[in-house]
Simulated scan of single mutants.
Amino acid sequence: MRSRRVIQLALRSAAVGYVVCLILLPLSALGREALVAGPGRFVEDVTQPQALAALTLTLETALITTVIHAVLGTISAVVLVRYEFPGKWFLNALVDLPFAIPTLVAGLMIAAIYGPTGVLGAWLQDRGLAILYEKPGIVLAMLFVTMPFTIRALQPVLIELEREPEEAAFTLGASPWTTFWTVTVPSVLPGLLTGVFLTFVRALGEFGAIVIVAGNIPMKTQVASVYVYGEIESYNPRGATSVSIAILAVSFLALVLLERLTRPPGERMPALLRPRGRAPMTVAS
């Protein structure tokens, strides 16, 4: 009995030490660096025009990316789980490709396709639609690197989902589209929220792909991560850490909200997100 307690204590200590050393200590050092000159200087660093423009662009493009994946990622997950078609295994494997390749390579691929020398990029440019070094290029880069999150968060939930409510909706005359949005989506809401929030926080911090496709034009296509890199190169570590803390704060708040909305098993979700006419939803263990 005593040996079991010793093992449990050792495991808990290892887990806490692992998180503290890899996350809490670096975050503390970053926060100290950003606030060493006082909160006033921190606010000044974050609200100066170039930094504020970079933060605004980052939030805007991350939100656009999240909305696109919330719709198309959900549809893709349903197709991969519910339908059989030739090449499904290959498509399913491709979903994880953004995890496997460096994001700089992703940026190079986007530049090769949508750049002025690429066939598609030249065709779009002739019609006045610029992708590279514009906001659409940033969104494309974010879409590529965050593609797996929503799909992979939804797939196991869809696999375990009971089909009886959907069949009942069909029996009552609901169309496939109505059944999908009123029965299927509410049933997988915890998984969908997980994928959506992870997509958002991952898009906020993307650097490698964006630095290739955005052009780093201040006040136009400079996102927060590229701005931070530029400030470090300009020997302004306080300005870099201040913007970093701002992005980290947004990411942390998003993860706290995710934790709030997808509570542990046995706890109810907020009434606002609870499907009407159904029992309170819990997260599958």
Rank of each mutant, 00 (worst) to 15 (best):
A77R: 06
V81K: 12
R82M: 04
R82S: 07
Y83T: 07
Y83W: 10
Y83V: 07
Y83C: 09
E84M: 11
P86E: 07
K88C: 02
K88N: 02
K88I: 02
K88M: 03
F90D: 05
N92P: 00
D96H: 12
P98S: 01
P98Y: 01
F99W: 03
V105G: 12
A106E: 13
A106C: 15
L108C: 01
L108K: 03
M109I: 13
I110K: 05
A112M: 13
A112R: 12
I113K: 05
I113L: 10
I113W: 04
G118K: 10
L120I: 14
A122V: 00
G128E: 02
I131N: 11
E134D: 12
P136M: 05
P136A: 07
G137E: 03
I138F: 04
V139L: 09
M142V: 07
V145E: 04
T146D: 05
T146Y: 03
F149D: 03
L154E: 07
Q155K: 14
E162W: 01
R163E: 12
R163N: 12
G173S: 05
T178I: 01
W181D: 04
V183H: 04
L192W: 15
L193P: 00
L193S: 05
T194G: 08
F197T: 14
T199P: 07
V201H: 12
A203T: 08
L204H: 09
G205Q: 06
V211Y: 00
